[in-house]
Design a protein around this nucleic acid. Structure first.
Lengths: 220, 220
DNA sequence: TGACAAACGGAACCATCGTTCCGTATAGTA
DNA sequence: TACTATACGGAACGATGGTTCCGTTTGTCA
C-alpha cells in the first residue's frame, strides 16, 4: 500500500488507476461493486458485510477482494469520493460574495451528505480511529478548506469570532447523528438551523416545521 | 464521576433474582459483575465483551448469565441506573426558581453523563433500536420530565418558544458524540455552551478555553 | 459434620464476518 | 479454434463474541 506515492488514486470508478489493461468483465465487475457498495453503505453504513455487497453486485467475494485489498480500502474509496465534492464546495464557498450565507449553505450541504450516505456519518462519528494516510490527507484538505471558509465568514462579521475550527468540526460531528433512521428530514433541517444559529452572530432562524414534532409549545 | 447529583445506584435487573434469597457468594458476585460492567462500559461503551466483564469481576461467564439472561439485559440494567438520576434532575430542575438556568444546568448534566458513561452515549446514538419495554418506559419518563422542564423554561421566556422537545432530544443526541476519546473536556463544554446558545433566547455564552483549540480564530 | 440445592467456572457451541485459497471459467489473441 | 493470462466464484479458514451446558464446588442448614 505504501508504494508508488504517485497519489493519483481516483476512487470513483478509477479507470486510469489501472495502468494495465483491465479485462472487460473485470472492468464491469469493478463498477458493479462500487455501485452496490455505495447503495448499501448509504443506508446501512460501514457495518454492511462484504458478502452482501458481493451478492448485490452479483459477484463473488473474491472479486471484491481482487479490487480492494480490505474492506477498509473499499470503504475509504467510497468515502473519498464523497469528501472530494465537499472540499470543492468549501473552497468555492470561501470565495463567495457573502461568506456568512455560504457558511450556512455549506453546513447544510454536509448534513445532507451525512443523510444521503450513512457511512460518512459513521466515519465522522468514529473520528480519529484507524484513519489511513490517504484518508487523513483528504480530510486534512477538508479541514483546511473549512478553516478558510470559517475565517472569511468571521471576517465578514457573520460568524462569532470566538468560534474555532474545532467547534465547527465538533458541531458537525454532532449533526452526523441526524441520520434518517430516526430523524425525519424536517427535523434534521431544524437541527442544522439551530447549529448555525449557535455559530452565527445574532442569528435566529425560522425553524422549518417538522412532521414528527407537533409544536404544542407555549405559543398562544 | 462528576455527575454526582444523587450518588445512589439502583442495581435492579433480574426481578425474580432479587426476590428470592441469594446465597452470600451469589450476592457478592452479582455486585462485582455490576461494578465491573459499569467500569468497562463507562470507558468502552456497549462493545465490551462479556468475557472481559467476567474477568474483571473475577467470575466465569456463566455467572454473568445467571444474573442477566442476555448482554442486553445487563446493559439495560446499567443504563437504567444512569437514567434514573437524570429523570430526578430534570424533575427538580423543572421546579427551580430560574427554569432557564436550570435548563442549561440540566443540559450540561446530561453531557457530563455521556462523558462519564460512554454506554449511555451509545444508547443515545442508536436511538430507537431494540429498546425493551422497560427501557422505553424509563426513557419515556425522561422525555416527560424534560418536556416539563422545557415548557417551564419557555414560559419564563428563557428558551426559544419555537423549540420543541424533539429539537432538544436531537441536540442532546448530537452532544452524545462528544465522548472523551476525541474531545477534551473544555471542548465538550464549548459544545454544550453552543447548543444552549442555540436554544436560549438571546444567549451568547462566553466559551470556555479549550486545550486543543487555541483561540487565534481570526488569526492574529 | 453431612447432605443437598444453589451457584460456580469455563470449555464448547454457534453465528457472524473479514479474508484467503484454489479449481474453474473466460476474454483476448494468434 | 486453441492457448493462456486474467479473472471468477464461493467454500473454507480464523478470529471474535454471545450463549449454553455440565461436571464441580460451596454456602446453608439440620
Amino acid at each position: 500500500m505504501s508504494t508508488g506515492t504517485t497519489g493519483r488514486e481516483q476512487p470513483e470508478a478509477a479507470p486510469q488507476a489501472s495502468e494495465r489493461h483491465l479485462r472487460a468483465d473485470a472492468q464491469r465487475n469493478r463498477e458493479r461493486i462500487l455501485e452496490a457498495a455505495t447503495a448499501l453503505m448509504a443506508t446501512h453504513g460501514i457495518d454492511v458485510p462484504i458478502d452482501e455487497i458481493a451478492r448485490l453486485a452479483q459477484v463473488g467475494v473474491g472479486t471484491v477482494y481482487r479490487n480492494f485489498p480490505t474492506k477498509g480500502a473499499l470503504f475509504e474509496a467510497l468515502l473519498m469520493a464523497r469528501i472530494a465534492p465537499l472540499v470543492a464546495a468549501a473552497r468555492s464557498a470561501a470565495t463567495a460574495d457573502d461568506p456568512g450565507d455560504a457558511f450556512v449553505t455549506f453546513v447544510r450541504q454536509v448534513s445532507d451528505e451525512f443523510a444521503d450516505f450513512r457511512a460518512l456519518a459513521d466515519a465522522m462519528a468514529e473520528s480519529g480511529v484507524d484513519l489511513s494516510a490517504t484518508k487523513q490527507h483528504i480530510s486534512g484538505d477538508l479541514i483546511v478548506a473549512v478553516e478558510e471558509l470559517l475565517r472569511r465568514a468571521q471576517e465578514a462579521g457573520r460568524v462569532r469570532p470566538d468560534v474555532t475550527i474545532s467547534d465547527v468540526s465538533a458541531m458537525m460531528a454532532g449533526l452526523s447523528h441526524a441520520d434518517p433512521s430516526f430523524m425525519d428530514p424536517p427535523q434534521r433541517q431544524r437541527c442544522v438551523a439551530l447549529v448555525c444559529d449557535s455559530l452565527l452572530v445574532g442569528a435566529r432562524s425560522v425553524l422549518p416545521q417538522s412532521d414528527l414534532a407537533p409544536s404544542s409549545s407555549i405559543r398562544g
